[in-house]
């Protein structure tokens, strides 16, 4: 039986089809697995290996390089507190201390109720908005301990805390694993087509007919190699 749910299996097939080589889809598929279950399980890695034509060990080899992938269960909400230079200068370490104190876990730990995992992380690119923390990769800028307490209260009360967060990010805060809440989808009739490196093709048509002209019947499927 396949690991991915039916909907995710369709997504996985679509993702793989966007790359010239299936192995390129390993990282997006690991994200998909993490989205499905909150962390990357052994079954997930076996399935991804099947889908991309490599071994499960290679999937783990790639995945373990990247810190976002979790190979053990984590809390429903991953709290990342930045303590890098810009945040440090404006109180990032004190914020981390408050987070650890109030949740009762050290960085790297998960609360007993499985709600929160805390991490001390490197720069999350919000340096002018320091100090900053993220919850499931949603930003909370110019944060202090009150901001954090309010976010925790929101999450325990079942409310989305995003209104307190970075302006422009709205809606629900998904559980750990979900990144973008919207996916790329290329409609079939608009697809230009992937170009495998093995195809020692010719230069693309628009270089031959310059400047770019309206497509003639012969050149409408741009990347079909001229046999």
């Amino acid at each position: 039986m396949s690991y991915f749910t039916e909907a995710n299996a369709r997504t996985a097939a679509e993702v793989i089809a966007r790359y010239p080589r299936p192995r390129s889809a390993v990282i997006p598929l690991l994200h998909l697995a993490q989205e499905q279950e909150g962390w990357v399980t052994r079954d997930a890695m076996v399935e991804i290996a099947d889908l991309t034509g490599i071994t499960p060990a290679e999937v783990l080899g790639t995945g373990s390089f990247y810190e976002m992938f979790r190979f053990h269960p984590v809390g429903r909400y991953l709290v990342n507190v930045c303590t890098n230079i810009s945040c440090q200068l404006l109180g990032g370490e004190e914020l981390l201390h408050h987070v650890e104190e109030s949740l009762g876990v050290h960085a790297g730990g998960t609360t007993d109720d499985g709600m929160f995992t805390v991490e001390e992380v490197e720069c999350v690119t919000a340096c002018t908005e320091a100090p900053c923390f993220t919850v499931n990769y949603r930003y909370f800028h110019r944060a202090d301990s009150d901001t954090f307490d309010a976010v925790v209260a929101d999450l325990y009360a079942g409310r989305s805390p995003l209104a307190r967060g970075a302006q422009g990010d709205h809606g629900n805060l998904p559980a750990h694993g979900t990144l973008g809440r919207l996916r790329q989808h290329i409609p079939d009739d608009r697809r230009a087509g992937v170009v495998p490196p093995e195809e020692a093709g010719e230069e693309p048509v628009w270089l031959r007919t310059t400047p770019a002209t309206a497509p003639s019947a012969a050149t409408s499927t741009t990347h079909a190699p001229d046999a």
Partner: peptide
Amino acid sequence: TDFSVDIT
């Protein structure tokens, strides 16, 4: 035009 490219 005959310019076609996919962005992934």
